[in-house]
């Protein structure tokens, strides 16, 4: 089984995340049958890593052998792109038996339906790699990071869970940093803490988007945050 060719799956980079698309989602996380996505896995394992807007799936494919015990899911809203990732994973599973059983892709709208798929505190890691910058001010509400969505991400993340962000757009980087730092349930990781994390170096080159930025000699801005407990006292 050959890997899929990207030329058949190209699609424009932007999607309106507010519109009603036709998505299948469970009414409650308990109702979702994960064995369709991870057929080789048995038992009670749950998705722990979530790549929001996974694009062509480069990060999933890179992390899969590094964390073979963890289930990872990529979310992608674009029809063709999510289908490409699915075909890629299916082909990899055939080419490398016993491998790539822990990664899968789902087409859904992460801004609306995360609580339908994940329980409170279920995720250990979330990734936002090269998110759509939505440059125009009027489209800022479509950005995947904002004050209100951070509360939803905090809800599905376990305390001490980690959020990774990378972008080549400085303005978006600053926007993301401000919003995470202002949110009481997140704190930024220091440079020292980043050095010991083997995932950080993978953020730069594992995705197709990251490789494109390198080809164009663009800058890359990384920011990583930790989900902390609520310090609120009555």
């Amino acid at each position: 089984m050959a890997l899929p060719q990207k030329k058949y799956y190209r699609q424009r980079a932007h999607s309106n995340p507010i519109a009603d698309h036709c998505f299948d989602y469970p009414a409650h996380p308990d109702e979702y049958n994960w064995s369709n996505l991870y057929p080789a896995l048995h038992g009670n394992s749950e998705v722990e890593f979530l790549d929001v807007g996974c694009g062509y799936g480069g990060l999933l494919v890179t992390l899969s052998p590094m964390y073979p015990k963890q289930l990872m899911l990529g979310l992608e809203i674009r029809v063709k792109v999510s289908d490409y990732v699915n075909d890629r994973i299916q082909a990899l599973r055939v080419q490398h038996p016993e491998m790539y059983q822990n990664i899968a892709v789902l087409r859904t709208n992460a801004m609306k339906y995360l609580p339908n798929f994940f329980h409170k505190g279920q995720l250990q890691k979330m990734f936002f790699l090269y998110p759509d910058p939505h440059f125009k001010k009027a489209k800022h509400k479509w950005r995947i990071i904002n004050k209100w969505l951070l509360s939803e991400y905090a809800y599905i993340l376990a305390e001490q869970g980690i959020v990774y962000t990378i972008t080549d757009v400085k303005d978006l980087h600053e926007w993301m940093v401000v919003h995470f730092e202002e949110h009481p349930l997140f704190e930024r990781l220091s440079k020292g803490e980043l050095e010991s994390d083997p995932i950080i170096e993978k953020l730069y080159e594992s995705t197709e988007e990251g490789q494109k930025v390198t080809r164009n000699n663009g800058d890359k801005y990384v920011a990583v945050f930790r989900r902390i407990s609520d310090k609120w006292k009555d």
């Binding site: 009414a27 409650h28 996380p29 609580p115 339908n116 409170k120 004050k147 951070l150 509360s151 939803e152 905090a154 809800y155 949110h183 009481p184 349930l185 609520d230 609120w232």
Partner: peptide
């Protein structure tokens, strides 16, 4: 900012 839960 802290979502206690959802009733789904």
């Amino acid at each position: 900012y802290n979502i206690q839960t959802y009733c789904l």
